[in-house]
Design a protein around this nucleic acid. Structure first.
Lengths: 309, 309
DNA sequence: GTGAAAGCGCTAACAT
DNA sequence: ATGTTAGCGCTTTCAC
């Protein structure tokens, strides 16, 4: 077999090229302020290739004080429906693609909503973190474990603290759009019960509907009961995967679905949908990028709302 | 605000406790062969806590030659249906939970099936890797970039090379089970077109059906056409999310679904299903664990098949 | 143009 | 019982 042994280091290259490791480093990183003769450069490059050299990013991180690792931390509870996972998967996969394209590596971790453990952020020295649907009280765990200065982007979470940059949909706009599509006046709402209570509240309020017309999805039994009680009314369903579950109990063609996963294609062709102008992953990614550049985040908004189409 | 500053290091602890960093290390890691007086121990622990000390895993990795990082690398192509992502998400999330529970951290990365880039394995010195649905030709890229000795578990991939440990379903058994459930004799099959051609072939063969009775899902148009042509025959559908798509075009209650995502609950209650005895994530995880322990992998099977229930 | 050397934060012989 | 030291693989300042 042709190769791949004990992983060459810069030292190995240096030895074989009769130069110092410093020189190897300069060549491999195209150091600006260094003038390396083309000859040496070539030689080093050759040898590096021949040895299948790959840099050890842990070592580099140590000196550069940047790891190139971005965390995606997802709050999960023991019992959650498939639709919720599918919903998060869409977001996470898209985000991962964007990050990977930028040369970052992505660390994915489930956080137990009951006892959030955020040590990973400090342990792995993550350069930035996305936190999805966090509970408001998690805020306390964070100040103990998370080094200041780490860009934190909260997705689907209302938390009034300067530390966090928040990204979420403009639910108010989405509801107007949804109502416009419905034929009947009287509507009910079916939505996820977020771990973040503030978000759940905010959405309820944005809907303008009374408490008893809003169903917070927890399990199918509850859903079925709610639907039975409201079979004569139109529903506005938040999220298309949730709509998928709803459609096991009711024909949803008269209802409106707010597509928070940007996947209208999973719905029946005739379904009434509300889409958003931008994908949440794109915007969340942009917010983090800005934050990493402008390390102070001084002229960045704490809240970014995604408008409906 | 109460804290969280520039991240304390062992040096800081040592200074404040008037001991050497070695001692700190011993205390923090409960070093066996070291006898530290309870008094010192206590003091060090106190200070560590007070300083919110969190170890830097990059530094530790460097000396221990183990990173505690496990990769989940997913082959993706530009255009893939939601159902495919949902399917992978189920597996990945479950796997991630298992790994996290064991104290590993998970690096998630999409691999472009056209030009797979596996440098991440060497760069991040991953302790083990799951590769999902890899093309057979990727095998060449791997020998160049991947250090020997890294445990590689291939999921949903047929590749006859000693280097890899493979996990997949026992399709033969699944098909028998499916056929037993169908009322009509004559059946067709609807399945994913895997990137790994060998797997696709293997499944076709296991079905015992002729080429024209097997539909490889690529897009909805093709599916619709196939279904129209075979409206009089029962279908065996591989994967419940794919079944979800199929059910947009046809009532699938007469069909059988092989639940490769372990999510029968997304199907109509009356659906005929084939389940598997164990979850694929659990088994894949076990294979990797075994591999990490028994570093040679000498008495481990190259192929592990998951039997149908 | 090139390299010696210090150091990122940590562990683990080896002394004492 | 505790400290000294030598690295892990890399970057970068500062001399030569």
């Amino acid at each position: 077999m042709v190769n791949a042994m004990k992983k060459a280091t810069m030292k190995d290259i240096a030895a074989e090229a009769n130069v110092s490791v410093a020189t190897v480093s300069y060549v491999l990183n195209n150091a600006e302020n260094q003038s390396i003769p083309a000859e040496t450069k070539e030689r080093v490059l050759q040898i590096a290739k021949k040895l299948n050299y790959v840099p050890n990013l842990a070592a580099r991180s140590l000196v550069k004080q940047k790891t190139g690792l971005i965390g995606i931390l997802l709050n999960r509870s023991a019992q959650e429906g498939v639709w919720r996972r599918a919903h998060h998967a869409e977001f996470i996969f898209e985000l991962e693609q964007l990050l990977t394209k930028q040369g970052y590596h992505v660390v994915l971790s489930s956080i137990d909503v009951e006892k959030p453990n955020l040590e990973i952020i400090a342990e792995r020295k993550l350069d930035g973190v996305f936190l999805i649907d966090v509970r408001e009280d998690f805020f306390y765990s964070i100040s103990k474990t998370v080094p200041t200065g780490v860009p934190l982007v909260l997705v689907d979470s209302v938390i009034d603290d300067e530390l966090f940059y928040k990204v979420m949909y403009d639910y108010q706009g989405a509801f107007s759009a949804a109502k416009n599509q419905l034929e009947r006046e009287s509507a009910v709402i079916i939505m996820e019960k977020f771990h973040n209570a503030g978000l759940t509240e905010k959405i309820k309020k944005a809907s303008g509907l009374a408490e008893e017309n809003i169903h917070l999805m927890e399990n199918e039994k509850g859903l079925a009961a709610f639907l039975a009680k409201n079979s004569d009314r139109s529903a506005i369903i938040l999220n298309e995967f949730l709509a998928g579950t709803v459609s096991k109990y009711r024909n949803i063609e008269g209802d409106a679905v707010i597509c928070t996963s940007n996947c209208p294609e999973i719905l029946p062709a005739e379904a009434k949908t509300v889409l958003f102008k931008n994908s949440k992953a794109t915007i969340a990614f942009r917010v983090l990028s800005d934050l990493i550049k402008d390390n102070r985040g001084l002229h960045l908004q704490k809240y970014t709302y995604l408008p409906a189409e």
